[in-house]
């Protein structure tokens, strides 16, 4: 199934990516090349086949509700691009 430039615009928004007009054309083309290739899956009948989201059939992996030490204070913000009063600072939301 083909993807349009409008689709690509929407997908870029959902991906939080900014595309120039040129980018948009380039990605539309290259994504369509891939999607054409992926269409070969249509040949395969997969009715009655269970989807396998996990590789192995592990289940019920739990931990006990036991406290573990959190990160040392000086390590929490060590990678923060911007901080204020012990918090991660971000530009305005709206």
């Amino acid at each position: 199934m083909k993807i349009t430039e409008q689709n690509v615009e929407q997908v870029a928004l959902f991906s939080r990516l900014e595309l120039t007009e040129e980018d948009k054309a380039v990605y539309t083309e290259s994504l369509n090349t891939i999607l054409d290739y992926l269409d070969m899956l249509d040949k395969l009948d997969t009715n009655n086949i269970e989807p396998a989201a996990h590789v192995l059939s592990f289940k019920n992996v739990f931990r006990e509700d036991k406290l573990q030490s959190s990160l040392a204070k000086e390590l929490v913000l060590v990678n923060a691009p911007e901080e204020e009063a012990g918090c991660f600072k971000v530009p305005r939301i709206v």
Binding site: R63, D65, K66, L67, Q68, S69, S70, L71, K73, V76, L77, A85, G86, C87, F88
Partner: peptide, 22 residues
């Protein structure tokens, strides 16, 4: 609970910001 959903950080309310993180 005493700890968070997927880690052992405390769930206690009202602590200094970012002191209960991992």
């Amino acid at each position: 609970t005493d700890t968070k959903l997927f880690c052992g950080c405390s769930t206690e309310f009202g602590k200094e910001p970012n002191t209960q993180v991992c």
